[in-house]
Design a protein around this nucleic acid. Structure first.
Lengths: 119, 119
DNA sequence: CGTTTATATGAATTATAGTTCATATATAAA
DNA sequence: TTTATATATGAACTATAATTCATATAAACG
């Protein structure tokens, strides 16, 4: 089991339309299953299946309160990931030819090709 | 076609083990197909298929140079996304019960539940 | 208790995606 | 102008995942 397999599972878990819908609602605050289903206009069982998938990836956690079960994000940084990836996706689909300053390996000058530019 | 569908496609495109392997190599600098295939120890045609998928999502772009075709990330921020999501995934899988300070909607006090805490 | 409300689950179906293999294309080199 | 090298492609196969439906569980309420 490689790190890429784990990371892929994690990203694919987030990368499903209905689950993204759920997660974006949970960014605003915790919600119960029925609430999610009705807002998203999806079947309760479908939402339940998706919540289970999210829970298995530790992306959400649940808490029972009377009959209802409330779900919330396990970590605030998930909200960032969701929001940032949406923004990035939008930009990339608009601008297919945005330049990146990595050089060919043999041509790299120092300072280029760094992963996290100080901005 | 909703924004969640687009975003899901984008995240799923990144969220595949071999493509993540490719992308992590491209974070270091551009590479040609054969180079990627040999480092990853995968068939050339498989890598080629995956590169096409990445290209269709505007995640990578290619540039021919003699017989070789070099691929690179379209945007530096993709490196950030890949690195940050790996870090987050690792933390979440270690710590399944990390608290997040969103309140139930009806219980939210001002300042809680904000998306991007100033940190 | 029986009934309503809320959620979960499993099996069956359908849809989507990854992989392999054979082969096509295209540039460069002999 | 044939041969070698590098990459792309399409079809067939296989694997994985999403959706639906029927039903199970479980708490609350009359």
């Amino acid at each position: 089991m490689t790190i890429e397999e784990d990371q892929a599972r994690f990203l694919r878990c987030i990368g499903e339309p209905t689950r993204l819908g759920i997660l974006k609602l949970l960014v605003e605050g915790e919600k119960c299953v029925g609430e999610l289903a009705s807002v998203l206009n999806k079947e309760q069982s479908l939402v339940s299946h998706h919540l289970r998938a999210l829970k298995e990836c530790n992306i959400v956690k649940d808490e029972q309160e009377a009959q209802k079960v409330y779900y919330k994000l396990t970590d605030v940084r998930l909200a960032r990931l969701i929001i940032d990836s949406e923004a990035l996706m939008k930009e990339l689909s608009l601008c297919k030819c945005q330049e990146v300053n990595y050089g060919r390996e043999e041509n790299q000058r120092s300072g280029e090709g760094q992963i996290c530019p100080t901005s």
